[in-house]
Simulated assay, not measured.
Amino acid sequence: MKAIRVALAGTGNCAWSFSQFVAQAQADPEASLPGLMCRTVGGYRLADVRVVAAFDVDADKVGRPLAAAFEAPTISATRFTDLGADRDAPVLAAPLLDGLAGPLGEVITPAGEARDATSESVAKALVEHDVDVLVITLPTGAAQAVRMFAEAALTAGAAVVNCTPEVVARDAGLSARFADAGVPLLGDDLRSHVGATTLHTALIELLLGRGLELDSTYQLNVGGNTDFLNLADATRSATKFTSKANALRAAGMTDVSGVAGPTGFIGHLADTKLCFANVRATSVLGSEVQLDVKLTVEDSPNAAGVIANAVRAAKTAADRNLSGAVDGPAPMLFKSPPNGLPESQARAAFLDFAS
C-alpha cells in the first residue's frame, strides 16, 4: 500500500520510541512485533509508516536530522534500535508559544529559529512534505502550541492525532471545522498500551461486571522523564487529571471518592514509570473487596504501540472519507475522546474499525 507520511509535533521520548518501533517494522515488515496489537489497520502495516518531518523548539534538535535530534540530553528513553529510512527527516522550528512554560524552560534552551516560526510556516512545511498525519506529542499544559499545530494541520489538510490531554477532539467547534474540511481528527490524550489508565479502567470494569459497588479509588503515578518533570508543576498538570477522570467515568465510575494522576518527579527513574492503583468495593452481604496493584513500565515504549495504531487509524479514516472527531477507534486509543467507552467495548470498536 501507499506509505503513510507522518510528521511529529515534538521530538521527545514518546516520539523517539515510536520512531524506533517504525524502524523495527521497516527492517522486517513481516515480523511479529511484541506489543503491536493489530498487524494491519485498514490494510496498513506499521512498515508502511514513514516519518518525513518533525517540529520542535529545542536548540539541540532544530535544524538537525531526526536521528541526531533524538540524541539530545533530554531524551531518556532506551535506544533499542537505530532509525532506518526516516533517520534523515528534518527537524524544523516550531513557534515557541507556551511549550517550555514551567520546569521545562529550565532544562531546554529554545532555538533562535523558534522565535520566527509561525503557524503559517508549519502549515507550509506540512504541505511541502506531503504529510498525511500529524502526531502531536507536546508537553501537557502547552494549550496554545497544541492548538496552533491543530490549526496548521487543518490548513494543510493533514489528519491529526492529539496525544496530549489538551482539548482538541473534544472541542466541538474545532471538530466541526475539521469535519467541514474533510480532515480526520483523533484524540485526546493517548492511552498507553498497558499503562496506568488501561490497568485502572480494567479493574473498575472487572468489579462492576461482577455486580460490586465501587466505594473509592486512587491512581498515583511517578516517573523521571521530562514528561513527569513538566507534570510536577500543578499549573501544567491540570488537564491530565481531568483527562484521567474522564477515562474512569467512561469505565463506569460515578459518584465515588477518587483521584488519578501524576504525583511526583523522581529523576533517577528516568523513563521508568510507577503506578500505584487502589480500588475499594462492596460485595455480597456488605463484604469489602480491595485491590492494590503496582505497575512498573518503561513509559515511552508503552506509548509507541498506541501511536502506531492511531497513525494508521487516522489514515484509514481519511481513506474512508471520515472527518472531524472519529469515534470508532478513539475510545481504545485515548483517555479522553469525545465519547468514551469501557475497555472491552472500546477494544471491540477498534478491532471492528481496523478490519
Rank of each mutant, 00 (worst) to 15 (best):
V57A: 06
R280W: 01
V168K: 10
A330E: 06
H129K: 03
D255G: 12
V326R: 01
D327A: 13
L341I: 14
A125G: 08
K335P: 01
A176G: 07
R210E: 09
P331D: 08
V183K: 01
L203W: 04
L351R: 13
D86T: 12
A72K: 02
P165S: 13
L206N: 08
R177T: 04
A47V: 05
F334N: 06
D233V: 06
S344L: 14
D255S: 13
A150W: 00
T254K: 12
L33R: 14
V311D: 10
F350K: 12
T74M: 03
A94R: 05
S175V: 02
N230T: 02
L36D: 04
P73K: 01
T201P: 02
A234Q: 11
G305W: 14
G195E: 01
A158Q: 05
S175A: 15
P184F: 06
N225A: 06
P139N: 12
L66D: 11
V259F: 13
A245G: 15
A68M: 08
R249E: 13
E113Q: 14
V49H: 05
G324M: 05
D88A: 14
E166A: 14
I108Y: 09
R50E: 14
P337Q: 13
D189C: 09
R147A: 12
T198C: 02
S336I: 05
L206S: 10
A77H: 01
L97F: 07
L231T: 00
A53E: 04
P34H: 07
P95Q: 06
L154T: 02
A260K: 02
